[in-house]
Structure formats: C-alpha cells, structure tokens
Nucleic acid binder design. Structure first.
Lengths: 350, 350
DNA sequence: TAGCGTTTTGCAATCGTTTCCAGTCTATTG
DNA sequence: CAATAGACTGGAAACGATTGCAAAACGCTA
C-alpha cells in the first residue's frame, strides 16, 4: 500500500532500526545517516503509520472531547478551540456528543478508552463518576464546565456563582426588585451555582427571595418558554428576567415576542453565555459572558500539562475557575414603576 | 495494562486464534466454545484493541469529517448528524476544521490518511483536487455541499440553483423589482449556483439584471455589512435583499439595525440556510432552507454504501442534490412604492 | 474397526513500528 | 600497537490482533 519504514530502510541500505532511529530524532543515529534518511524518506514520501506506532507505544495522538451537543454556543466555541489547539500540536480531536445522557456517556467513554486516546476533556453528566475515576488511572482527564462530584479530577469551571451574582446585581442596580430567574436543573453544577449567585445578590440588597420568581428546569428551549409564561402570568410579574439557562433563551425570547412585549421597555432581559447573534438582535441582548474560549484554552493547557507530566504520581488535582464578565447591550434598562392600564389610557388621551 | 485476547485465551485454555475466531463471530468456532469464550471475555472485561486490529486489517473504525468551521449553522447540523449516525454503527468521528483554507485542508487530509480513516466526508475548498483524487484510491470519500471540480468524486450537494430561484421568485411575486443579492464567492459552487438561480428568476420575470444589485464576497459577516451598506447607499436602493451568503447574514442584519430600518416595512429580507434563532427573531426571518440535515444524512448513506462496497472497482460516481425549501416567516412583505421624503413629510403634516 | 469428509483447533506469520541487546567500527589512550 | 571506551548499527522481540495452513478431533458409513 503505502511507503513503510522498511522501504525507506532498504532504499537507504540500512536496517529498519537505524531508519527508525534516524527519523525518530533524538540523536540516536549519526548526523550523516540522519540527514540521509530524512532526505530519502521525503523523496519516497514516507509517512509513519500512527497505528503501528500506537500499537507499540500505546499512544494514539488522539484526544477525546466529550460534550453534550453542538447547539449550545459555548460548546461550539469549545470544540473549535480544542481542535485548533490540538491540531497545532499534531493531535487529532475525537469529538463525541453524548447529549447529557449518562448511558451514552458511559458507552462513549468506553469507546474512547478503546481507541487509546492520549487525553480526554469531558463535560461530565455527573452520573459516571466511578468510570471516570477508573479511566483517570490510565489517561489524563480534565473535566470542563461541570464537576463530577463522585470523582476527584482536575476540573475547569466557569465562575457561575460570581457570574450570576454580577448579573443579578446589575439588574438590582437598575432598580429592579422583582427579578425572575430561569435557571438550570439543581443537580447540575451550573444550575446550583447560578442560583446561589442570584440568591446572594438579592440577600445583599436586602430583597427577600420570592420562590415563585425562580424556575429551574432542563436545558431546553421549552423550559424557557414555559417558565417565561409562568413568570409573566404572575399576579405581580417581574420587571426583569435573568435567563441563566442558556438553552432556555430562545424559548423565553419567543414568549416575549408572542406577547408583544417590548424589550427593554416592558421587560428587562439578561441572558447567560454569549451567542454571536445576541449582538445583532434588536435590541442587542445583554449577557453574562461565561468565557467559553478561555475555559477551553485553560482546559487544553491543563490537559497538555498532565499529558507531559505523564503519570507523575497522584499530582495535585486542582479546580480552576474562569471569571464571568457582564456585557451590557440593549436589553436591560432602569426600572420604572408600571402605570396601571386605566391611568395609562387616560394619560394617553390627555 | 488491560485485558488482551491472550488473557482470555489462557483463561479459557484455548489458543489465541480460537479465541479470536470465537469472539469475532462468523461461526468459525464451535457453538460451545463460542458461548464459553464470550462468557469468559465478559467476565474478564475484555475489550478488543482497535489499534492492534487496525494494524492487521487496515481499518480504524474512524471516519473523518472535514468541514470549515462550527460557526455556520449548517456545519453544526452536519457534524451532529454525522457523529450520531456513525456512533450508532460503532464508528468514531474524527472532526477536523480547516476553515476553508487550502493549506490546512491539505495538511488535514494527510493526517486523516495517516490515521487510516475508513471513510471521509469532506466539504472541499476546491484547491486540493489532486490530493483528494489520490486519496480516493485508498478510501471511500464523499464530498458534501461543495464540489471539487478537479475531481470525480461522489458528491452530495444542496440544490442551490433551485433554492436561489424559488427565493428570488418569492420576492418577485411579492412585487419586488429591485432585489439586492448578497452571495458567496464566484469560485465556489454555492456562490455560482445561487447567483444563477437569482438570474434565472429575474429573467423569467422579465426583470433586467442590474449588476449594482449583486454583491459576491467572502463567507464572513463583514461581507454582509459592507455589501448591505453599498446596496442601501445606491441612488435607487433595492426594496428587498436576498442574503444568500449565510455567513453574511449577521453583517446585513447589523447594518439594517444601525440604520434603523424596519423590516419588513422599509425593506424585505430573505436569508439562506436556517439558524435556530431566525424563528425567534423579530421579525422572524424568512429563509430558503438548504436542508442541512438531509444533506448530512444522504452523505452518510452514500459513504456507508461505498464503505460496504469496499472498492468494487470504479463504480458509478454520482452527484446528488437535496432540494431547498422556502420557509416564509415575517421578514418579507409585498412591495409598496416608496413615498418620496418631501411628499412623505407634507403628507404627515396634513 | 478402518476410511473418509467435515468441523474445530493450533501454529505461526503478519501488519509497521519501537526498542533492548549485542556486535561492529572508530578513535583515543597508555 | 594493543586495549578500551564510545558511538553507531543490526538483529530480533515485542505490541495485540487476524488469518492461511495443516493437524487433530469428530461423526459417519461400509
């Protein structure tokens, strides 16, 4: 089929081992033969077979990235960054999508292990802790965005408590008192942490927590629409909604559009995690940016670090946080007390 | 390290070859030993090593997907579909992003070949035809979305001439005569074909082609903003714009927002290729849907077909087209002749 | 029970590398 | 000039599977 090391060795009239050493670098061959073999290899168009090499060395030059989907904007960014960084180092990315489903995650982890990936970045569901722990004995693993509580793995997280805090505080500073929160499930790191940030900001401002204003649900647009409807149907609806569940954003947006609510005049809207089109939307949507790009970069850094360290014992397992930033655009504005319909109508007539 | 076939064989007190045959299925071992070995393998937690297998068989159970990026919504869908379909068949997807750059594409193709992928789906830049042709001798390749004119590969394309045609005709039927077109570069299949569909619709309607209304450019938001500005600055600006360059959509949207144009009242806007948020945007954006999901599915079908056929000679290389559909939402409306500013002002005063 | 055909099994080669272990060659030193 | 260290090189054994070939075991029939 293709040119093998043997062909190169024969062409150069040396043994296979010499050829291997010359091309493998490391100065294990004399300068002269090395140059000669590199030349011959190039002439012949030799390309080492990573499978054969992998069999011998146990390395595949493959790195797994296991995420939930590619719909979530943060995951897109993460996938792009990871693949770009790895390619530069001559690794290939094995992208796996397991849709936040423990069973799929389990299977995928097995497959990844089978393929002898040299490293793994995973957004864990949190239900396969034991498997992850076992896997971590064999290869470097970095958890991203979510922590798996059953494991003790290096983890890169967004600073969700802080992000939700600064977002909520921003709304409070604008004068909002009744702030609706649409957030992720309580059994996820981000769900819990964002809720905690919201609660803390409220508490610090001396605003009592109103349970009816908080909706936690699945990471789906439907969550957003359902929650948004319930919030707006409240006897005393919120003047601002903080959609801290990224996937729910579309749903929330749909409902406000359906009801003809003008944002930010009738309702202030603050979302979490940027999407490219948020900036072009009318009004441009203000967000708490979780720093997906930096998260991915840091995860890659940590992974490479571990891969280089190459199993140097039970080294310090750390947790990293990437801070969130508030990006003010046009979807939030200072609170104005609502004018009652009757008054409003007469005012308009005046 | 892990459990190998040898371990299983020893535990079962048979030779390695027997173990291999028993586990490999195909009835090459007696029913009894087969059952026994399957049981023992399971008990031991044996998982075959795909690398070793790959070395012998030349198969990797890896399939490459080479696309430009993950920002483009169609590519997201394609990546999700391909990975889901492949996983179900126990293949892994090697996702590569080459950003429409011939050099990166070239390198990536090499790497993919090195890793002995069993098949490849590629959105070609069109500049590495020779390499693709050479590669096609060794493994099944399906081109997607773009054709590489220098090759003769199985290709799955969107029906862009038709898509652009129905889109343009829709606008014409709404009464628009001056229709701006923002389209992709002329050296891409989609760029040329969408332009041709636009031209045909115009011709059939007896509307002369006005070159100043057509802008072809790179697949970037900037193209959209620059082109949109030029169109709107025309002495006689278009009453509708057809953004047939997906990436340019955001740019066009930004400009219309900047200028405070109300869509569809001041301008009808029709875009190409759906994005999830188009439906939630205000107004919801009408589009020509290129059928990304079906494109991906068909590409996978064709690839699997070729992989099964396993080099059955120079079998019929076909080109497939997936038809486009018009999805009417709220961003286009019937043409009304513009009221001159002076008249408008006096009319308002009246 | 011998002879024959059919399963079923084991041996060993192979895939393309890497790497250990000796062996060869050169150069240096006493 | 002989001895010896050091640098290079070649042979061969891995890595973990698959697979052609031949031997063994089996079931039949005569």
């Amino acid at each position: 089929m293709s040119v093998t090391l043997k062909d190169v060795a024969e062409a150069a009239r040396v043994s296979i081992s010499t050829a291997s050493r010359a091309l493998g670098g490391g100065g294990l061959a004399s300068e002269r033969t090395q140059q000669r073999l590199i030349r011959i290899a190039r002439e012949l168009g030799y390309r080492p077979n990573p499978i054969a090499r992998g069999l011998k060395t146990g390395q595949s030059r493959l790195v797994g990235l296991l995420i939930h989907n590619l719909t979530n904007a943060s995951f897109q960014v993460i996938a792009e960054v990871v693949q770009a960084r790895l390619k530069a180092l001559n690794y290939q990315m094995l992208l796996c999508l397991a849709g936040d489903d423990p069973q799929q995650e389990h299977d995928t982890l097995n497959t990844l292990a089978d393929h002898r990936v040299d490293g793994l970045i995973v957004v864990p569901t949190g239900r396969n802790g034991a498997q992850l722990t076992a896997l971590a004995d064999k290869l470097p693993i970095v958890c991203l965005v979510r922590r798996d509580n059953d494991t003790d793995l290096e983890t890169v997280l967004a600073d969700d408590p802080q992000g939700a805090y600064i977002g909520t505080r921003y709304l409070i500073e604008l004068g909002h008192q009744r702030i609706g929160l649409i957030v992720g499930r309580g059994d996820t790191t981000s769900g819990r942490e964002r809720l905690s940030g919201y609660v803390r900001a409220l508490r610090e401002a001396g605003i009592p927590l109103d349970e009816t204003l908080v909706h936690a649900g699945h990471f789906e647009p439907e969550t957003g629409s359902a929650s948004c409807r319930k919030l707006l149907d409240l006897a005393e609806p919120p003047s601002a909604i903080f959609v801290a569940n990224h996937e729910a954003t579309l749903g929330a947006l749909r409902v406000t559009a359906e009801r003809g609510l003008s944002i930010p005049d009738n309702l202030s809207l603050l979302c979490y995690e940027d999407m490219p089109w948020f900036a072009w939307h009318r009004p441009a949507i203000s967000i708490v940016d979780n720093g997906a790009r930096d998260l991915a970069n840091l995860a890659v850094d940590r992974l490479l670090n571990r891969m280089d360290a190459k199993g140097q014992g039970a080294d310090g397992v750390r947790e990293y946080r990437v801070g969130a930033r508030l990006i003010k655009r046009g979807s939030c504005k200072p609170y104005v007390s609502p004018i009652r319909p009757s008054i409003s109508r007469s005012a308009a007539k005046a």
